[in-house]
Amino acid sequence: MIDIREAGAAPVTGARAQFVPKRIFLTGAGGYVGRNLITHLTATGSEVVGLVRSHTSAELVRSLGAVPFRGDLLASQVIDGMEGCDVLVHAAADTDHGPPSPEQRRTNEEGTRNVLAAARAAGVTRAIHISSESVLADGRAVVNADESRPLPRRPAGGYSRSKAVAEAIALSYNGAGLEVIVVRPRFVWGRDDTTALPQLVAAARSGRMAWISGGTYLTSTTHITNLCRGIELVLAQGRAGEVYFITDGEPIEFRRFVSGLLETQGVPAPQKSVPRALMRALAITGDLLGTLSRGRIAGPLTLQVFATSAVEVTLDIGKARTELGYQPVVSREQGLAELRAGRWGSRTPDP
């Protein structure tokens, strides 16, 4: 793990900067972001209670230094785990980029409503809702967007739609003693990655991966350490009711970045390229077939996947820099070197 002190992290300053939560309730504690947040937040002096669904995940969370709480995002007893907590970090989500599903809506929308309602009832004073830049996705390029960019009328897919609704639900609980803040990362990557990197490696090894229009468009990315640092700063001094983008800073060419990720695993990058117009047509057709067949027919590509990997998606983090004093503490070069060296432990994600 990279020590943020060695990586040049700026100290938190200002009147609110000295706030260190005593006890944090973390949903999605067994997931990729959750596991890394446990390590990061406990190092700042906070106790973390992690919501998990399985014995395996409970043991993992305990080994990382958190107190596991067995329960379900949608269960009423989730409030019991928040006893004595002053902060909620809601990291749990169904991130599937396939066709929309009732399960995804329940997890992302009703799950958010349940945990925010529980937080208010339990006397939690500050809640961080981890969202995604995908709330802006509709299949068109998102270029240097800041937090004022309006959400699209027609989201790219079920994930974008459910996360946008979840954001609105979370922010509706802001007030009456509970401060709610939204954090939006983009393309989270780095050590211990059990989400994007394994999928990219599997696609490349199978020969199914091809660059869309050469893959030369730009993308923003967010190393897991930078995301954890951003959340730490939001906890300390983020403004209630606000949204903050957290990324690695300057964007990078999509093909160059993904090729770099694959290289860290000893997997050669593909050479094939396909026209963007063709892939968009396939995605739209696939989504239509899925809708008409009620999910019985799945196309080779969804518009959700297309919107997040086939067009430029770049974000302006000026607000986080100005209001939070945020700056990336791990460069892409450092993150890739860490992956190349294999300096991360094997983790078992929450099922």
Results as ranks from 00 to 15, higher is better:
I2D: 02
A7I: 00
Q18A: 12
F19W: 11
P21T: 11
R23W: 02
A29W: 09
V33I: 15
N36F: 04
L41N: 12
A43K: 10
S54K: 08
S57G: 15
A58F: 00
L60K: 13
P68W: 14
R70Q: 04
G71S: 05
A75Q: 02
I79A: 14
G84L: 06
P100Q: 14
E110F: 05
T112G: 09
V115H: 07
L116P: 07
A122K: 10
I128W: 05
I128L: 08
R149I: 15
P152G: 10
P152R: 06
R153Y: 00
R154A: 13
P155W: 06
G157R: 10
Y159C: 00
S160D: 08
A164H: 06
A164R: 06
A168N: 08
L171K: 13
N174G: 05
A176N: 09
A176R: 06
E179T: 02
I181C: 02
V182I: 13
A196S: 08
P198Q: 15
Q199G: 11
Q199T: 13
V201L: 14
I212T: 11
S213D: 15
G214A: 01
Y217P: 12
T219H: 05
S220Q: 05
L233W: 06
A236E: 03
G238Q: 07
G241D: 03
P251M: 00
I252W: 00
F254N: 10
V267R: 10
P268W: 11
K272C: 09
L303D: 13
E312M: 07
K319A: 05
E323A: 14
S331P: 08
G335H: 11
W344T: 14
S346V: 13
P349S: 15
